[in-house]
Nucleic acid binder design. Structure first.
Lengths: 198, 198
DNA sequence: TCCATTGTAGGATAACACCTTACGTTATTT
DNA sequence: AAATAACGTAAGGTGTTATCCTACAATGGA
């Protein structure tokens, strides 16, 4: 398909990761179009290896996976563009031109996936209903979050404008309600319930 | 402007962050439209405080800042939508409906900013060389993880088959190397560096 | 009206964190 | 080869802290 375009020249083709690596080193192409479905090696590793060898040619990745973690991993490895296989030919061509000119390119749906992922992690407020967490009062929940972050009673008291003793009462009640007896269990509970600011 | 729409009712208006906080607690609105330009407090803190009080009403943020770090901070604090002030009224209305129905909303330009930022960071293959974490020994890293999870020196000592005093030395060296002086900073450091088992 | 829950706080005491010093062993540098 | 730095290990002393108990007013549902 690419040969139909007069401004494109295919100067090499490879069937597997190792071959691709060698070819890129020999040919020094203006752009590498990389299908991540390889028989011999992991696609991300391939990109990493290319970059590790100091090769800076733009890499446009072609793959069928539309998953946030994978996309991020690939881009972090040093890819410059990410196009889904289901995309139209015209998008691929457009992406090639864009990446070759130094810009980044993501398929529309890929961009959406990334953003959804970002926002999802950002605020997932859903909590289990039968959890003893429901037993905690608003004040207690606030203290729990602080405690899990390693603040001392006094520090929490200062931030909440209370007596350290009051904070201590909350701590005691929290532990009672959650049937917890050690700080570490409390931290673990907070992690499990995503109460820590990540 | 909003009063022109029959399906909207403005049930409260505030001139500053504290007032907003109180109003949200009293009125329990279906949605909070929050302008982050406040005279009295930081907008992010305001959202944090709202969430800390267990208030779950959707928050649509209105601001003039189109900067990735800020956007992420705001969304991470628990906002459900982010609209730029320069946006058209119709976008605001659309965003309100979208956020109220449980979806997230970002202005187009904001979405682009986020993605650009993501890719920028993504293509930056340089590892944090100047991160003091590199200074920590294997043993110290292990202790750091335990400490961040709220274990006491004795508990850690038991698990690592060491004297509590030895663990204490590690703690001291860790804090020295990381230039940290409080447990809470240490926990925060661990969170930032994804040292906690999630 | 009564009992449970919540928000608030003080006292006593054992536990703990924190800082300092120490020492033998292993790398690393000169 | 010698000097130096880093590491793994540990103890003493001191002041802070957590922990457990008790207490009480206000709110609210039974």
């Amino acid at each position: 398909m690419l040969t139909f375009y007069p401004d494109f020249t295919v100067i090499g083709e490879a069937d597997n990761g190792l071959q691709a690596l060698q070819l890129v080193e020999e040919c020094e192409p203006d752009l590498l179009l990389l299908d991540l479905s390889m028989p011999d090696m992991n696609g991300v590793d391939c990109i990493n290896e290319i970059r590790a060898r100091g090769l800076t040619c733009p890499i446009l990745v072609l793959t069928m996976y539309d998953e946030a973690e994978y996309i991020k991993e690939v881009m972090r490895a040093g890819a410059n563009g990410y196009v889904l296989k289901k995309s139209a030919d015209t998008e691929l061509v457009e992406a090639i031109r864009k990446v070759h000119s130094g810009q980044k390119h993501l398929s529309e749906t890929v961009a959406h996936t990334l953003i959804d992922n970002l926002l999802h992690k950002a605020s997932d407020t859903s909590l289990p209903e039968n959890d003893p967490y429901q037993l905690l009062s608003v004040r207690e929940r606030e203290v729990l979050r602080y405690l899990a972050q390693g603040y001392t009673n006094s520090e929490i008291a200062r931030q909440m404008s209370l007596s350290p003793k009051t904070v201590d009462t909350y701590r005691s009640r929290i532990m009672g309600k959650l049937a917890i007896h050690k700080k570490s269990e409390l931290v673990n509970y907070a992690i499990q319930h995503k109460l820590l600011p990540l």
